[in-house]
Nucleic acid binder design. Structure first.
Lengths: 188, 188
DNA sequence: TCCTTTTTGGTACAATAGTACCAAAAAGGA
DNA sequence: TCCTTTTTGGTACTATTGTACCAAAAAGGA
């Protein structure tokens, strides 16, 4: 029968629990017992669905990255406000996933097998920036904007600011600089 | 007698060892035993000089942050090339300290007592950007540039690129945008 | 010099954590 | 239905780790 719906649900519950534990206590807090407790399942469940602790952690980080990618995927041709909203969604509504994603980035610094996942995320960020700025920026300049958005995300994660759409839009304008109109579709 | 020169040296050796262990294995690898082994001192030394493991870790992260601040301190009025060199120094020569500093940033996300250290770093980054760009940028725009430099640093840390002064200078120009001259002091 | 304080380093203990194990239960498929 | 496979959850074992302890050594100060 190979896989059970209920079993799959439990597996997902464990992955979710990893993110919550990670957000609250950092990487070193991610233990079989802590995750199982957070997910409300017995200890053995955490060892049954994953080869070992590393597998559990990495699986959770990869899943979080995929989920975050979806937030930016539908941004093609979007206005600046939509991009700002996506950023807020990324750093506030899905804060645990965002933190997980950056933890994965740091793990990628010392483990080549994770580099691909990191590339995936930065590729998506580039695409989103491209989509939101249209063809107003050349490739070189867009590279700088992507770095700035990355820095902005980091800032939003640890400071909690900016915390509303207008403020994030303002931040994005500061990044794009004075030569860009207030909104690509609204050249007021 | 309160403190011994040799004892102080050993204390510093332990803090250095923390950074190396952290760079290699991440936060969860930082154990009394691993640090003591890396520093070449007996286990008990790691418990003698610090209250507990958390004290050891946080002390090391704080020290790394202070050291990194020094890299950007003497940048007042510097040219873009000097800033690029400082970034390379930061991410390559002092990679372990840089990683430690970002680990501290992530710890600050869940511990208020570390927020001040994080502010310190970002304040220094802002100052450095201000010093390197002179008065060519207004405050809002400078904010965007600081975020971009932060993102660039992250990129340099996990990708290792750009890895030479010219390339970093190019990256900085991509960040500053087309409206800025190649160099503030060299308006070729 | 003698005395006090600090440092050393080896050892031991208790807590935590990773993982194996297994008998019972549940879930499909034939 | 019966049989096989998967899942469950409790338990136990072992490794790792944080931390306490202590006697000996070293390091100043009087």
């Amino acid at each position: 029968m190979s896989i059970t719906p209920k079993g799959e649900a439990r597996r997902q519950a464990l992955l979710d629990a990893v993110l919550r534990v990670l957000e609250k206590g950092g990487p070193s807090a991610v233990t079989h017992r802590a995750v199982a407790a957070e997910a409300g399942v017995p200890l053995a469940a955490a060892t049954y669905y994953f080869d070992d602790l590393d597998d559990l952690l990495v699986s959770a980080l990869r899943r979080a990255t995929e989920q975050q990618l979806d937030l930016f995927a539908p941004l093609a041709g979007a206005r600046l406000g939509d991009f700002a909203r996506a950023l807020l969604d990324y750093t506030h509504t899905h804060r645990a996933e965002a933190i997980a994603q950056y933890e994965l980035l740091f793990m990628a610094m010392r483990r080549d097998s994770l580099k691909g996942d990191a590339e995936l995320w930065y590729g998506a960020l580039d695409d989103a920036v491209r989509a939101a700025t249209g063809d107003r920026l050349d490739e070189a300049r867009r590279r700088g904007v992507s770095w700035a958005v990355d820095g902005l995300i980091l800032h939003m994660l640890w400071r909690g600011e900016p915390s509303n759409v207008e403020a994030v839009e303002g931040a994005l304008r500061d990044i794009l600089g004075p030569q860009s109109p207030r909104d690509p579709r609204d050249p007021t």
